[in-house]
């Protein structure tokens, strides 16, 4: 496999895990715009343990993931008291605090970043992404998953049905934090270098977009969203120059065409994001869509209409 594709697969795997980390709280109705904070904790945890103590990779990533999960559990109690846009701001502020602390800490290299000695090949993040995907699918198929989705729809009624809504939300937030931390640890070891600038606010926004545009009702959503938005800029990398020379030749411009500016890829990404919000406001993959497929299958299986 070429280095290019190994790199793409690594990024894709990390983004999928990261997206599931944000999906879990979002599926219970809690928007989490602090993704970069959890990812940074996981990444720096792993990087620090690897650089300072030379611990083996499973340990560094595992500990980083655990710290991110525990952080999520602890801050969930105050954070989940806020609602709607205030929760979004509070989680965003959390990520900024994490960023600020790391930037001002000599132990973690400050603005210089940390280099990570142990390297992992692309197949480690890919394997992890497969395991995490299966884990989230399993979780969503249990009663725990059912109560998560119920809390998303109507907290009052979910409570009256006998569900401890708060513990469900705290658990989802903490498990989500751990998954985002896992994505961070894998990132640190895949790229051998962490700097706090790569865990900025844009990262939190993008991962939340993957989840919201992919769909928050089923575990297929973040998988589709993360894959679509990770692969799209790569696809545009080859499509755009072809498009530009096509337009130039139509307009009758002679000679060699300079490659379009890289930022055009993000213009198209933005336009597609808006189009998705207009045409698929509940996300790319919805419950009804899955149900349509499943319904036809089960009907066909039964043979006769009920």
């Amino acid at each position: 496999m070429s280095g290019y594709w190994a790199g793409i697969l690594t990024i894709l795997a990390i983004n999928i895990i990261f997206a599931y980390g944000i999906f879990l709280p979002v599926a219970t109705g809690q928007l989490n715009l602090g993704g970069a904070g959890f990812q940074a904790i996981g990444a720096y945890g792993a990087a620090f343990l690897s650089a300072s103590f030379g611990l083996p990779v499973p340990v560094t990533i595992g500990v980083g993931m655990a710290i991110a999960g525990i952080t999520g559990f602890v801050i969930a109690f105050p954070l989940l008291r806020t609602r709607g846009v205030y929760l979004v701001l509070a989680t965003f502020a959390f990520a900024e605090v994490v960023g600020g602390l790391i930037l001002n800490s000599d132990t973690f290299g400050g603005a210089m970043g940390l280099s990570v000695p142990a390297f992992i090949d692309w197949h480690v993040p890919v394997t992890a992404a497969v395991v995490v995907t299966l884990f989230v699918f399993y979780l969503m198929s249990t009663r725990f998953g059912l109560t998560m989705r119920a809390a998303h729809d109507d907290e009052v009624v979910t409570d009256l049905m006998g569900v401890n809504v708060r513990s469900i939300q705290v658990a989802a937030f903490a498990i989500g934090g751990a998954l985002a931390g896992l994505a961070g640890g894998l990132y640190a070891h895949s790229f051998n270098f962490v700097e706090i600038q790569s865990f900025n606010a844009l990262v939190s926004i993008y991962v939340l977009l993957y989840v919201l545009l992919g769909g928050t009702q089923t575990a297929w959503g973040p998988l589709a969203g993360a894959t679509f938005f990770t692969m799209l800029p790569e696809a545009l990398r080859t499509v755009l120059p072809a498009l530009k020379s096509g337009i130039y030749s139509l307009a009758g411009v002679e000679g060699a065409v300079p490659a379009p500016d890289d930022s055009w890829r993000f213009v198209i990404l933005g336009a597609l994001t808006i189009a998705m919000m207009v045409f698929r406001p509940e996300g790319l993959i919805t419950r009804t869509m899955i149900e349509r497929f499943g319904f036809h299958r089960s009907r066909a299986g039964k043979g006769a209409p009920a």
């Binding site: 009663r143 059912l146 109560t147 119920a150 729809d153 109507d154 049905m161 006998g162 569900v163």
Partner: peptide, 19 residues
Amino acid sequence: MPHLSVLENVMLGQQARAG
């Protein structure tokens, strides 16, 4: 719950016995 199926809504009602 608008996003849950008929069956899932009913199963939510079992929570007090299945929690």
